[in-house]
């Protein structure tokens, strides 16, 4: 029986590759968007503008305080109520962007705050503009603190893409879920799904470990 199911599994293997492709697509687009938005928000969060800081703070607390699956439900079920009709795929990207940016924002803000005040003062006295100070003096130093947890966060985000399966996006986990209905070999099906996730995230975990060691020096 196992053998029979295994050959069925081999038959529908392309289906899994399609799922992997979808997962990679969602992951890649959200990592890029989250990094961009996260850096901007992180700079705001570590700035001196109290009002903007508070607003970003509330947003971050909401995202960090609620499960991602609840956030997806809110976006997917409630936005249509408010007149914004979204397909599953864009809704998934939106949810990923909102969630990921908040976590990256915290990492970036932490990195910027770790830089000694004297560096700002030195850069200010050299007559650099605010943007120049950030770009030339602060962020290059903060990167050392930011990079290891950032890559770690990327791994978490890639894994979180599995949750968007709940609104029917045909990514890897959804493929597994659909398959297991037809081929009732749960261990086999989800081992395969797991192995495919492993092949994306494990290299990143190793990179994160490497960066952590390297930056510690």
């Amino acid at each position: 029986m196992m053998g029979f199911y295994f050959s069925r599994l081999v038959e529908i293997y392309p289906f899994f590759l399609k799922g992997l492709w979808m997962t990679s697509k969602i992951a890649f687009i959200s990592l890029v968007t989250c990094t961009l938005i996260g850096f901007v928000l992180g700079v705001i969060r570590s700035s001196n503008n109290i009002i903007l800081k508070r607003i970003v703070g509330v947003y971050v607390a909401f995202v960090r305080g609620t499960p991602f699956v609840v956030q997806i439900f809110i976006i997917f079920f409630i936005l249509p109520d408010w007149g914004l009709q979204l397909d599953a795929f864009p809704a998934a990207l939106l949810a990923m962007a909102i969630m990921g940016s908040a976590f990256i924002c915290e990492i970036v803000a932490g990195g910027i705050n770790s830089i000694h005040k004297g560096q700002w003062e030195a850069a200010t006295s050299s007559g650099l503009t605010m943007i120049q100070q950030l770009r030339l003096v602060i962020v290059p130093q903060a990167m050392k603190v930011i990079l290891p947890p950032l890559v770690g966060q990327y791994v978490l985000l890639i894994k979180d893409t599995s949750v968007v399966s709940v609104i029917g996006v045909m990514e890897l986990t959804r493929v597994g879920w659909v398959t297991v209905v037809r081929i009732p070999e749960g261990l086999m099906v989800f081992s395969l799904v797991g192995a495919l996730y492993f092949s994306i995230s494990y290299p990143l975990i190793l990179l994160s470990n490497y960066l952590e060691r390297k930056m510690a020096i």
Binding site: K159, S162, S165, T173, F198, S201, I205
Partner: peptide, 8 residues
């Protein structure tokens, strides 16, 4: 650590 909780 390298597979999603949902898959687990």
């Amino acid at each position: 650590r390298s597979t999603p909780l949902l898959v687990q």
